[in-house]
Design a protein around this nucleic acid. Structure first.
Lengths: 347, 347
DNA sequence: GGCTAGCACTCGAGGAGGTCGAGTGCTAAG
DNA sequence: CTTAGCACTCGACCTCCTCGAGTGCTAGCC
């Protein structure tokens, strides 16, 4: 069954009033804010149609209407006016990114902060992640005669360090020579290729290669388990959180990493900004929340996620604008760091 | 005026009962839990003495007693039985540190998590910080013909990367030669020495040196502004946070960095574990909280802080044990990474 | 002189009852 | 199809009341 234009307008205003105030919206109160040229009784009739179609619901008999998840989805898809961040905001944000250290973790943390600040909800960002992580470059740095620091940089821009204990002392000169020889050979190899190369090599080289492979594994694992979250203070401030129980749920979900291990792997990164409302999140605990989500690109075949998480009653238009803009900013920044050959051609 | 032994025992039991239940403790209820060989009336008399001396207070006329800040301080200093984490816990914790990546940020994050988990409050950890940061080693890695990644490691174990745009293309071979020449010369120099060395050098060298100096500045700044906090979910669960307002205060204080900029710089790192209760924290917003704090060492002249933050009603003995143990574990780990000459002698 | 039994008093928690107002559905008329 | 009118519902909020844990004080006991 099709909605009439007036019903669509009523739905839109109910949703917007609800997002603003957090309270159930009644027919009379609605007409005090917006004029529809009809009486409260007419609005009530349309509201009861909308209720029958599961767009609206009543918390109790004598209360106003509240949008259902279905109603919110319809609003986001068909009724909401999308917007962009103002040019001043965009400038401010770009400026902030120029201020911080030019490295991936700083960018991700800042991106989460900015998402939180501009949307007034929790900002979430995952690290960039390659389908298979490849070595870009490694260096060996002598700390003490038999202790060496291995530093390596990967395709996705991750930097990793680990300590090696040597059987016998080695000078920096020898270490440098080793990395000079091995680097060209290992460039763009993945973990498995490096492991294969390790078997049969002389002991020192084998040690280094095995530790590089191990580091790549660590990095891949970390990329799957790390999540930058900022702005909890905004969400806790919402009236929904008055009993503080929701806040606890939220903290536990974020810490437990259920989003990362369960939800994100099931989504297609190529789809642009999407809005997941309540049960879309497929986690009972997250039922009262919504997530506005987008992927970002960081070189060919390397992507990450970023989004805004808040109560179902969130300012969707604003969150979507923030997510869309940040996605493009982060993608730009990341591809500067990127350096794999395929990607150079694309730019 | 001196407390009698019985008064000290009563104070101890009131504090412990209050820490356990969070409710005001009355004379009769106290005697139901512990036997002191006297009647409630006697306990009441002693309680009123303790109240006159500002160890206890009454929330309202007909309620039991609650310890004051002064009473808590006395308890922590003279009455509390200190303990250690059990050997099993210690083993578990050491095991966890072996599981994660062997690098500073992972350790710090894990330390904050462990503090939170073992104490049931917020765990806080600051990065290690040298009075003046010195260069240990740097490398130049060619990403694209005219874009170079500068990676450097400092005395305190911080790793930093930044991007350099070159005026003209340079091959990896040339870059490696450059770092081979410059590294021995720059080792253990601080920012100002490197800046001095930059003036008058040929353009390419000057560029690199200036960027290294800049990176050191960035790192010093970050060490002053970064704070790892974990375990908010525990604190939010406390009954004190039922109205969710405290949670908001806490989140804002943590994000605002007031602890870092205001409180920590005024403390002496050499003092061992200390307990700051309520107004000791010198921040109005933190009045309802307590902080158990210790420094850790990471090589000569390099120290950081770690601690447990929670409501005044926290399990102090446990928090102190956790902080003390983690301080020693983190100190050990850090000094493995450390490599400055003075420190090698000390070990 | 310290300890205790007894007692009157205080005050918050929590339940019962009552009012108010925002909101609804229904009906009948325009 | 719209609207005015009306009876009805129900949560929010206030007041009143009771209950019980806890106190301080006093007088008597060891």
């Amino acid at each position: 069954m099709q909605l009439t234009e007036r019903q669509r307008q009523i739905l839109r205003h109910v949703v917007e009033e609800y997002l603003r105030s957090g309270r159930a919206v009644g027919s009379k109160a609605l007409l005090e804010r917006v004029s529809l040229g009809v009486s409260p009784a007419t609005v009530r009739n349309d509201m009861s149609v909308l209720e029958a179609l599961d767009f609206l619901t009543q918390p109790h008999t004598s209360a106003g209407r509240v949008p259902t998840e279905h109603g919110l989805r319809y609003y986001v898809q068909y009724l909401m006016e999308e917007g962009e961040l103002t040019p001043e905001e965009q400038l401010m944000i770009r400026h902030q990114f120029r201020q911080v250290e030019q490295q991936v973790p700083s960018w991700l943390k800042l991106a989460a902060s900015v998402l939180a600040d501009t949307s007034g909800n929790v900002g979430l960002v995952t690290p960039p992640r390659a389908r298979v992580e490849r070595l870009r470059h490694f260096e060996l740095i002598s700390l003490r005669p038999r202790v060496v620091l291995l530093v390596l940089v990967t395709q996705s821009g991750a930097i990793h360090q680990s300590l090696l204990d040597l059987a016998e002392p080695l000078e920096q000169e020898r270490l440098s020579a080793l990395s000079r020889v091995l680097n060209p050979e290992l460039r763009w190899l993945d973990r498995q290729a490096i492991e294969r190369r390790a078997s049969g090599a002389e002991p020192l080289v084998a040690l280094v290669l095995r530790r590089i492979a191990e580091a790549l594994r660590f990095i891949e694992q970390q990329q799957r388990s790390e999540l930058y979250a900022e702005g909890l203070e905004y969400v806790v401030r919402q009236p929904e959180f008055a009993q503080a129980q929701l806040a606890q749920v939220l903290l536990e979900v974020l810490r437990g990493g259920m989003l990362l291990t369960w939800l994100l792997p099931r989504l297609d990164p190529s789809e642009g900004v999407r809005v997941l409302i309540g049960s879309d999140l497929a986690l009972r605990e997250l039922r009262p929340f919504s997530l506005v989500l987008s992927s970002y690109r960081s070189g060919a075949d390397v992507t990450g996620w970023l989004g805004v998480l808040g109560p179902q009653r969130m300012a969707y238009a604003r969150a979507i604008a923030a997510v869309r803009f940040l996605s493009s900013v982060v993608s730009e920044l990341m591809s500067e760091l990127s350096g794999e050959p395929e990607w150079e051609g694309v730019r």
